[in-house]
Write a protein that binds this DNA or RNA. Structure first.
Lengths: 224, 224
DNA sequence: CTCTGTCAAGAGCACTGCTCTCTTTTGTGC
DNA sequence: GCACAAAAGAGAGCAGTGCTCTTGACAGAG
């Protein structure tokens, strides 16, 4: 029967999820460095070798957590977006805040995706789509409004890359605007990382005001 | 005699340096995660426990490497600076390039300082001074020239932080300019991190053109 | 020469990721 | 209902890790 087969698979899927959940909980406590397969198994009342029926290696477990984290921060950004009714600028600012809020409440998960890459190099191909969700949310802010296009000399290589992106995103924006969007995207995560990783300690230690200000200036910077 | 005592201390200092050098070499190969005290000791022809006469823990060794790395990237930035004879804008661009070049040739050392923080939380106090060298090099670019000051509303908390920085740096710049400098600083390392950590893969994969363009736009952005 | 502080060496502990073999459980075709 | 095959868990074991503790060698000071 398909039902019994499904029962097996369902049990498997459930345990796979439980392992990930427990791993995520330990991740929040001890970070990626301290995450131990044996500890996860211990907490779940099983023996360490049994984990390997579900994840071929520790790195593979981490890679799955990475994909989940990308989706989680992407969803946080999308949830923060007030939607088409709101003014584009307000949407932009809300997404910035929502992204930062998620990062601050999930510092270790954030570090997993935007910190130094895992030794086993998480396959970029699996992560490239979920990783772009925050950026896409920001871009969506602009598609249904006409932003004042910005002129500016853009070197040929960058112009080519920008045009490829323009087509892929279906956005009406010149190369200078696209490159500014990339800079704003970099600024968003650069600021979050600097804050979370302690780089702002000597200068703008509570970085809330600075972050909010950056969000505004970057909105103007891209022509919003 | 002081000489004999110095001989002892000199031997000790030499071995300490040799351990750090070997550790740095292994760091470049296997990254911070893979750095093993026992492997370092093995390569140096000594036994692992002997290392503990020089470094109380693995984390402490890493912390020392962190300070060295901050100084190295700071020195790279300073070396790239053509000096007071050159135009401020050219100095700015050269420092951006020099910083990125060092990061690209020392990816693991870069990840050590600008990636996810070490589990044992490298004491920020020890690193705050060497960590500011790159930023200081950028600021020096502006001190001996008058940059067109930028007006703009700055919220009170950020204004206060900016004024504290203005005094500490002895720079003639309003709060808006200072906050833009902080944004440029964030942009510099955000872009380097995104490039090195594979975040640009789907968009601006060879990021050279984009980085150079960002350096220009950020120079304008701060009023240079 | 003796005493004292420094250093390297080695054994050992508790832990890790991972592999292997063995046994138990589970679902299915007859 | 039963035998068989696939899946899953248990346990031992390997090689490696950071770190501690004890032991023995050596150099400088009195």
């Amino acid at each position: 029967m398909t039902t019994s087969r499904t029962a097996r698979e369902r049990a498997r899927a459930e345990l796979t999820q439980e392992i990930k959940d427990e791993a995520r909980r330990q991740l929040a406590e001890v970070g990626a460095h301290g995450l131990s397969l044996r500890a996860v198994a211990r907490e779940l009342g099983m023996v360490s070798s049994a984990i390997y029926r579900y994840f071929p290696s520790r790195d593979r477990l981490l890679t799955d957590l990475i994909v989940d984290a990308y989706n989680a921060i992407g969803e946080a950004a999308e949830q923060a977006d007030p939607g088409h009714d709101a003014a584009p600028r307000d949407r932009w600012l809300a997404i910035w805040q929502g992204t930062r809020d998620w990062a601050r409440t999930h510092p270790h998960e954030y570090a997993l995706i935007y910190g130094s890459p895992i030794p086993g190099y998480a396959a970029p191909q699996d992560t490239v789509v979920p990783a772009s969700r925050v950026a896409l949310a920001l871009v969506k802010t602009l598609t249904h409004t006409e932003l004042r296009n910005i002129d500016g000399e853009v070197p040929p290589e960058l112009r080519a890359q920008a045009e490829t992106l323009t087509k892929a995103l279906g956005i009406l924006a010149g190369p200078e605007t696209v490159s500014r969007l990339l800079m704003a995207w970099t600024q968003l995560f650069g600021a979050i990382s600097f804050d979370l990783f302690g780089q702002y300690v000597g200068s703008v230690d509570p970085a809330d005001a600075f972050f909010a200000h950056s969000a505004k200036r970057m909105a103007e910077f891209v022509g919003l």
